[in-house]
């Protein structure tokens, strides 16, 4: 009961925020926090629930950003539709990478590395392919205030869009956690051999997790492209992006519903604070991210969520 009331209050606050907050900067910061929570949620399905740590999720992010932008630029398809195209392409690619990785039994570090390599191949390919803008990348043509084309003159609408996306992803993951598939994912994560003994098809479960994860992450890619109206191979497929995607769910708590959002809030707030206070050494917030990651790995193996959830 209390929990539900708390959640409702939080949601109310999130919806009301743009009406109260006058600062564009604060709104922008919140948009980025929600955005990273959203793609983190995508990573969380595969990395957190199914226990397959991908170091190359920028692959799906980039596919989402590129597909919707290309569809808009080349054929005038609205990014609202393009984002689902992007998700579809990402799912298709994920089935291929997933099939290869899981069929050959890649696990742990090997899986992480292979995903990194796949993302790098896409990055180099995108850098050299003229049709997708090569190294220049893609500029989404601006049409002023065009809600039908996923373009808003006012930042607040982007805020509501990403808030809605985050809510849906979080609700989806909450449902997944209680579903049979969710249990199977956790079983595979905890002990693949034991799960197999119980008749769970680990290959199938991991592949589905990969596809879901890829789809969500790709939707985030489209949001990025529309919000920034610019994407290039490094922003899209770069390894730094892959790391950004996985940091938040891990720090917040991988394999939990609220972990990605929590991690995103923690890093977002800390990042802005360090930016504000240690101006002379402005790169320092990234050092801090690293330290937080290391501390979290040792002391909070279940992320910040683990602090109040007993395992």
């Amino acid at each position: 009961m209390l929990r539900k009331a708390g959640l409702a209050a939080l949601l109310g606050a999130a919806v009301a925020a743009p009406a109260v907050i006058r600062s564009e900067y604060l709104i922008g910061t919140l948009i980025l926090i929600y955005f990273f929570a959203f793609v983190g949620q995508g990573w969380n399905v595969l990395g957190g629930y199914a226990g397959q740590f991908s170091f190359g999720h920028a692959l799906f992010f980039g596919i989402g950003a590129y597909t919707s932008s290309l569809a808009f630029i080349k054929w005038g398809v609205s990014p609202w539709l393009g984002m689902w195209l992007g998700a579809a392409v990402a799912v298709a690619v994920s089935v291929v990478t997933g099939h290869l990785s899981f069929r050959y039994g890649l696990r742990g570090a090997y899986f992480a590395l292979v995903m990194l390599a796949f993302a790098e191949i896409f990055r180099v390919a995108a850098t050299n392919w003229e049709w997708v803008g090569a190294s220049f990348g893609l500029l989404v043509p601006l049409r002023g205030n065009a809600p039908m084309l996923f373009q808003f003159a006012v930042k607040r609408w982007f805020y509501y869009v990403i808030l809605a996306m985050l809510l849906m992803a979080t609700a989806g993951v909450a449902r997944l956690q209680r579903s049979r598939l969710g249990y199977e994912m956790v079983a595979v994560r905890e002990n693949e051999a034991a799960a197999a003994a119980l008749g769970i098809d680990a290959y199938r479960v991991k592949l589905i997790a990969m596809a879901l994860s890829a789809g969500i992450t790709a939707l985030g890619g489209t949001f990025y492209a529309q919000y920034f109206s610019y994407v290039d191979p490094t922003i899209g497929f770069g390894s730094a992006n892959s790391i950004e995607i996985l940091l938040r769910p891990i720090i917040g708590g991988a394999g939990t519903i609220w972990g990605p959002l929590l991690g995103s809030v923690v890093l977002g707030v800390l990042g802005e604070i360090t930016r504000g206070f240690v101006k002379a050494y402005a790169g320092l917030h990234l050092v801090l991210y690293g330290v937080i990651l290391m501390v979290a790995v040792v002391f909070l193996p279940h992320g910040v969520m683990g602090l109040w959830r007993r395992h």
Binding site: G28, K155, F228, R275, A282
Partner: peptide
Amino acid sequence: LDNESKPPVAISTMERLKD
């Protein structure tokens, strides 16, 4: 304001300058 050579941070610097 320092935009850290990153487009997302560059956006947030513009927001702060506007504010």
